[in-house]
């Protein structure tokens, strides 16, 4: 049974390019306009992706609907700069100064695979996840951190505990913003692996969750 993957469109140019543009056209079964989220019927959706940089102020009024979706067995993916700490329970976030220039200063970003044998990395090699991030999360007990910023916290984690039986996938990475801005090819490669990962991995989607 194939999963219904939906994405949120906040009306920005980069969401337009990422969700309707030629590169990923057809990758999403449905698109929901962000201001419509509080009253949107999410019951037929298996995986809902909150696209990078959707304003937390627009998402906060939809908090109840989104949490109900996950508690009903859905998978919610909160991409970078969507402020999930302000509309999901148990999300702990710390802002950090963004180092846009590590690659020019001869250093490294300090991202490491926290669960290197996870299937995620078969779809998204770590190199395709490295550009920058604006902060890090402290995952709750029982969550699985996939990518960490050394010494700061997680930048991508999987939480099947907080709103069980549903799943939260929370990341500080913002590939849809940069892909949609025609900026940084690694972000396009990230999405190219990430969307099939969401469709294939047995941990996601309602069809594999207790109802």
């Amino acid at each position: 049974m194939s999963r219904i993957l939906a994405a949120v469109d906040a009306g920005t140019y980069y969401h337009h390019e990422s969700l309707y543009g030629a590169r990923f056209a057809g990758a999403f079964d449905a698109v929901i306009y962000a201001p419509h989220l509080p009253n949107a019927d999410l019951s037929s959706i298996d995986i809902l992706l909150i696209t990078c940089r959707t304003d937390p102020a627009v998402l906060a009024p939809a908090a109840q609907n989104l949490q109900r979706f996950v508690a009903g067995g859905g998978t919610l993916v909160a991409m970078g700069s969507t402020g999930p700490h302000s509309w999901l329970p148990g999300v702990s976030w710390t802002d950090t100064p963004t180092n846009f220039w590590w690659w020019k200063e001869g250093g490294e970003l300090g991202l490491i695979a926290a669960s290197p044998h996870d299937r995620f990395f078969e779809y998204v090699p770590l190199n395709n996840a490295i550009w920058h991030h604006h902060g890090a999360f402290a995952p709750p007990p029982g969550a699985v951190s996939l990518i960490e910023a050394r010494g700061l916290g997680s930048v991508l984690y999987l939480d099947q505990v907080s709103l069980a039986p549903g799943t939260l996938l929370i990341t500080a990475l913002d590939p849809f913003y940069h892909h949609g801005s025609h900026f940084m090819p690694a972000t396009t490669r990230f999405i190219s692996g990430f969307l099939p990962f969401l469709r294939d991995d047995p941990r996601f989607g309602r069809c594999h969750s207790p109802r």
């Binding site: 940089r53 959707t54 304003d55 937390p56 102020a57 969507t82 976030w93 604006h134």
Partner: peptide
Amino acid sequence: GLTHCVFLKAIKGAGG
């Protein structure tokens, strides 16, 4: 006492 330039508030509180 007049506002001459109105900025539309962009996304806030999400880092950066």
